[in-house]
Write a protein that binds this DNA or RNA. Sequence first.
DNA 1: TGATAATATTTGGCATACTAAATATATAAA
DNA 2: TTTATATATTTAGTATGCCAAATATTATCA
Lengths: 123, 123
Amino acid sequence: MRRNFAIALRSLNLHVGQEHLLCRLWSGDGVTQQQLCEHLKCEASTVTNMLKTLEKNKLVYRIRDDNDGRISRVFLTEKGREIKEPIEKMWRAQQDKLLNGIVTEERLLLRRILKQMEKNLLP
Amino acid sequence: MRRNFAIALRSLNLHVGQEHLLCRLWSGDGVTQQQLCEHLKCEASTVTNMLKTLEKNKLVYRIRDDNDGRISRVFLTEKGREIKEPIEKMWRAQQDKLLNGIVTEERLLLRRILKQMEKNLLP
DNA sequence: TGATAATATTTGGCATACTAAATATATAAA
DNA sequence: TTTATATATTTAGTATGCCAAATATTATCA
């Protein structure tokens, strides 16, 4: 999945993983980095590095919180907003390709099994 | 899975992914790097870097092929061989944890669905 | 108030993983 | 035999992702 999607993302000049972070911002700007790393389930330092790259590519920008100087809030640029549609199109295409030949019943069971596995592994 | 297993592997001073390469060697030494990257489904440069680390940690060593100087063949050290059992124990533990609460019927269907997905994605 | 603890982010260092380009060796073709 | 092509590995550069330690800011408690 990852490898496949990485190839598609290259046409948008993105690295795999970044689209996940952007997705969180599409459903609401001004999030803290702490919230981002909870959502992405990765370390704070990883978020810092990803944001550094995204900021360099003018997809996001950061503003320090007025009330709490430790917090930095992340916002989408116009470019970051515009990239939403093409990525969602890629997601749909990837999903269709992945699930080809798997009927609805199986998809539902698969979902249940994966949820169980998640529960089994997470602390 | 990856994250979980990474934590377990740390007790053996290994990084996640390395155990997969070692596994290939346990079922047969003296493999070329080309064969390794086909088996791991990753790029040749990745194999080079992984082997560099594994060699530094005295788990493997490389010998240039006599008949074809381009080829380097990879072998396990004693240490690399000894690490097999503890890793297989970790695999079994991880599997049991992952599949807890999923009955045999479901496991079989899951397997079939995943195989289908692999076929859908691979070129 | 002033020292201490908690929280948020950053930095440095390392590993997997990729691409693109370089290097070395072997094979094929003129 | 020399040139061109193919194959195997390496190097350089970049990104995600981790850990551990550093830094900055806020909250707490004596």
